[in-house]
Design a protein around this nucleic acid. Structure first.
Length: 629
DNA sequence: ATAGGGTTAG
C-alpha cells in the first residue's frame, strides 16, 4: 500500500499541474507530500519531494526545511537531516528544535548538547521544546548533572510551568533513579495531564520494590479522584505488576482487562500491540494461559511481539508442543520473522522435549541472522544444549568469543556440568569465574551446590556456601538452603541436615523439607522421613506429588494399608496427579514411557537391556539405583 | 503551515 500510494503521488508531483501554481502554493503542496511521506513511511517519497524542492529553488523555505529534517530523522537518517539543516541559511528555533529532536530520536545523544551550545551562541533562545528534548537526553544517558542543569534553566526561563517540560523532567529524574525528585516536580506542577500521572507511575514501578505496595494504589486512586482517566500507557505500566504476586493483587489484572474493554481501548493501537502484549503476559504469568490465548486470538493484527508473548506464555507454563507449533505458525502463516526475544522464548521448549534437532535449527537460524552475539540468546543456547544432552555443544557456545559473557552464562555452564554429574568440573569452572572477576549470584550458587550434591562433593559444597555468602554478599535463599540440605542429606548426614534446617537464616519451605524427605528415603531413616513428610504436607497440603511420593515409600515397604489410607486422603481432597513420564528422541521419533509401561513394541528388549545395565552399574558400585518395576 | 513528554515485550 505504501509503495503504491508513493507511486501515485509521485506521478502527480511530476505532472504539469504544478508548473502553473504560485511558489507559495507549490511550497504548501510539497509540505503536504512530506507529511504524507512520514505517515506512509515512505523515504522514497521524501527524497523525491526533496529533489522537487531543490529543482524549484524552494530549499530556503523554513517550513519545508523543518519538515524535511523531521522526515529524514524519522527515516533514521540523521546525516541527511543535518545536511538539510546546514543548507538553510536563516535558521529559526523550529529548525534547531527539529534537528535536536531528530538526533534524540536516533539515539545520537552526544551531539545534542554540542548543538545546544551552538544554538545559544546564535541569537536564539532555547524554548520549551528544546528543554523537553534536552531533558530526555539527560534521562536516556542517565546524566543527572546535565538533567539538573536543564531543570534549573527550565525554572529560570519559566518553561517549567509547561506540562510537557515538567513531564520530561520527571521522566529524566526517574531514569536517573531519583524518585524523590520525580515526586517533587510532580507535586509542584501547576497543571497535570494523563502523561504526568503516567510518568509518576512508571517512575514508581521503576524505582523497585515499591511496585506492589500500598503507595502504588494510592497514586492510581488519586489519579482517578483528580478526574484523569487511565489510558493505554497507564495500563501497560500497571499490568506487569499483576499476576506476579497473586496474593496481594488477586484479580486486578482481570479488572484492568475489563476496564480496557469497557473504555473501548484498542489493544493494537497504531500497529503497536504493547497493551495486548501486556495482557497476554499478565495472564500467562498468572497461569491463565487459556485466557492469554483468547486475548491473542482476538487481536486483529499480530506482530512479532504478540507472537513472542504468547509463545513465551506457553513455554513458561510447560506447554512445549504448543509453543513450538506457534513458533512455526508465526513464520509460516503470518510470515513473521522471529527476533532475538522470540528465539530466547522458544528455546526452553526444546529443553523439555530434549529436542536437540529443534534447538540446533534455532541456533542455525540465529547464526544466519547474526543474532548469535547476544548474551541472553547464547545463555539460552548453553542451557538448551546441556539439557538436551550435549555438554560439548554447550561448552562450544560458552567458549565462543562472539559474545560478552555475563554471570548467567557462567551459571548456565556450571549447572550444565552439574546436570551431567560432573561436579569437579563445575567447581573448577566456578573458581575460574571468580578468578576472572565475575561476581557469582544466588543462581550460580544453586547450580553449583546442586552439582556438588549430585557428585558427593559435600565439603567443597559447604565451603563454597559459606564463602559465597561471606565474600559476595549473596543472600541465602530457600533454594540455596535446600541445596545444602540435599547435599548433606544425600551423603547420609541426615542429622547435620536437620541441624542446618533448624539454624537456617530463612523460613524452610517445601523444597527444603522435600530434600530431607528424599535423603531419608534413600538412607532408609524412617524417623527422619516421617518428620520431614509432616512438615512437607503441612506446608503443601494441596500438592499431589507429596502424597504420591508418600504412598510410593509405603508401597516399597509393602505397607499396603498405609498406601490405601494415603490414596483415600488424596481422593477426599480431590487431588490428582498426572503420571510422570520419560521420553527419548531416536531418529526424529520421540518415544514416551510411563511407569511399568510395556506398550512400546520393543518393550521386551528394552527391559532386557535395562537389566543388563543395572547389573553393570551395581557391579561398578554405583551408590544407588532405582529398579523399574 | 513548521517542533516536544509517557511502555520497549524474555
Amino acid at each position: 500500500m505504501n509503495f503504491c500510494s508513493a507511486g501515485i503521488t509521485f506521478t502527480l508531483l511530476s505532472s504539469r499541474y504544478y508548473t502553473s501554481a504560485t511558489s507559495s502554493d507549490q511550497a504548501l503542496n510539497l509540505l503536504h507530500f512530506l507529511k504524507l511521506s512520514i505517515t506512509h513511511q515512505s523515504p522514497k517519497l521524501a527524497q523525491q519531494t526533496h529533489a522537487r524542492i531543490l529543482a524549484l529553488g524552494l530549499h530556503q523555505n523554513p517550513f519545508l526545511g523543518t519538515k524535511l529534517i523531521s522526515a529524514y530523522s524519522n527515516f533514521k537518517n540523521p546525516t541527511w537531516a543535518r545536511l538539510v539543516f546546514d543548507s538553510v541559511e536563516l535558521k529559526n528555533v523550529y529548525l534547531w528544535n527539529t534537528l535536536v529532536n531528530g538526533y534524540v530520536k536516533n539515539g545520537e545523544y552526544v551531539e545534542v548538547f554540542e548543538f545546544f551550545k551552538g544554538m545559544c551562541r546564535g541569537d536564539l533562545f532555547p524554548d520549551d521544546y528544546t528543554l523537553a528534548s534536552l531533558a530526555k537526553v539527560a534521562g536516556e544517558t542517565g546524566d543527572s548533572a546535565a538533567g539538573k542543569l536543564v531543570h534549573g534553566r527550565s525554572i529560570r526561563s519559566g518553561f517549567a510551568l509547561d506540562v510537557v517540560v515538567s513531564n520530561s523532567l520527571m521522566s529524566m529524574y526517574g531514569k536517573c533513579g531519583s524518585f524523590g525528585d520525580v515526586r517533587k516536580v510532580f507535586d509542584e506542577m501547576p497543571q497535570r495531564n494523563v502523561g504526568s500521572w503516567n510518568v509518576l507511575i512508571a517512575g514508581y514501578v521503576g524505582c523497585g520494590d515499591h511496585g506492589l505496595d500500598e503507595g502504588m494504589w494510592k497514586i492510581v486512586k488519586c489519579m482517578q479522584i483528580d478526574g484523569v482517566k487511565p489510558d493505554g500507557f497507564t495500563l501497560s505500566s500497571l499490568l506487569p505488576l499483576c499476576g506476579v504476586d497473586g496474593r496481594k493483587w488477586p484479580d486486578y489484572g482481570r479488572e484492568f482487562h475489563c476496564y480496557i474493554v469497557k473504555s473501548e481501548m484498542e489493544l493494537n493501537l497504531d500497529s503497536d500491540a504493547h497493551l495486548g502484549c501486556c495482557l497476554i503476559d499478565m495472564y500467562s504469568k498468572s497461569n491463565r494461559f487459556v485466557v492469554a490465548r483468547r486475548v491473542f486470538d482476538q487481536m486483529k493484527s499480530g506482530n512479532v511481539y504478540t507472537w513472542t508473548a504468547i509463545i513465551n506464555g506457553y513455554t513458561e507454563n510447560g506447554a512445549s508442543d504448543e509453543a513450538l507449533n506457534l513458533f512455526r505458525e508465526m513464520q509460516v502463516r503470518d510470515g513473521i520473522e522471529p527476533n532475538r526475544v522470540s528465539l530466547v522464548s522458544v528455546l526452553p521448549a526444546c529443553n523439555s522435549h530434549a529436542s536437540l534437532i529443534g534447538g540446533k535449527q534455532i541456533h542455525g537460524f540465529a547464526i544466519r541472522k547474526l543474532l548469535n552475539n547476544d548474551v541472553s540468546l547464547c545463555n539460552a543456547l548453553i542451557d538448551m544444549y546441556s539439557k538436551c544432552g550435549s555438554l560439548d555443544l554447550a561448552r562450544r557456545v560458552f567458549e565462543d568469543d562472539s559474545f560478552v559473557k555475563d554471570a548467567i552464562s557462567w551459571s548456565s555452564m556450571i549447572s550444565g556440568y552439574g546436570l551431567h554429574g560432573r561436579g569437579n568440573e563445575a567447581v573448577s569452572l566456578y573458581d575460574k569465574m571468580v578468578l576472572e572477576g565475575v561476581k557469582p549470584d544466588g543462581i550460580t550458587l544453586v547450580g553449583l551446590l546442586s552439582a556438588c550434591g549430585r557428585s558427593g562433593l559435600v565439603d567443597e559444597g559447604l565451603n563454597i556456601y559459606s564463602s559465597a555468602i561471606k565474600n559476595y554478599g549473596i543472600k541465602p535463599t530457600v533454594e540455596i538452603c535446600a541445596c545444602v540440605v540435599d547435599m548433606l542429606g544425600r551423603s547420609g548426614q541426615l542429622d547435620q541436615a536437620l541441624e542446618f534446617i533448624k539454624n537456617m537464616p530463612v523460613q524452610p519451605g517445601p523444597s527444603v523439607w522435600g530434600a530431607l524427605v528424599t535423603a531419608s528415603v534413600i538412607h532408609g531413616n524412617s524417623t527422619m522421613q516421617d518428620l520431614a513428610y509432616r512438615y512437607l504436607i503441612e506446608l503443601e497440603p494441596e500438592n499431589p506429588s507429596n502424597f504420591i511420593s508418600l504412598s510410593n515409600v509405603y508401597a516399597s515397604s509393602k505397607q499396603w494399608d498405609v498406601v490405601a489410607k494415603v490414596r483415600t486422603m488424596m481422593k477426599e481432597k480431590g487431588l490428582r496427579k498426572e503420571p510422570g513420564c520419560s521420553w527419548i528422541s531416536v531418529n526424529r521419533t520421540t518415544h514416551c514411557f510411563h511407569v511399568a509401561d510395556k506398550a512400546h513394541p520393543f518393550s521386551n528388549s528394552i527391559h532386557e537391556m535395562l537389566e543388563n545395565l543395572i547389573f553393570v552399574m551395581k557391579d561398578a558400585k554405583c551408590s544407588y539405583v532405582e529398579i523399574p518395576s
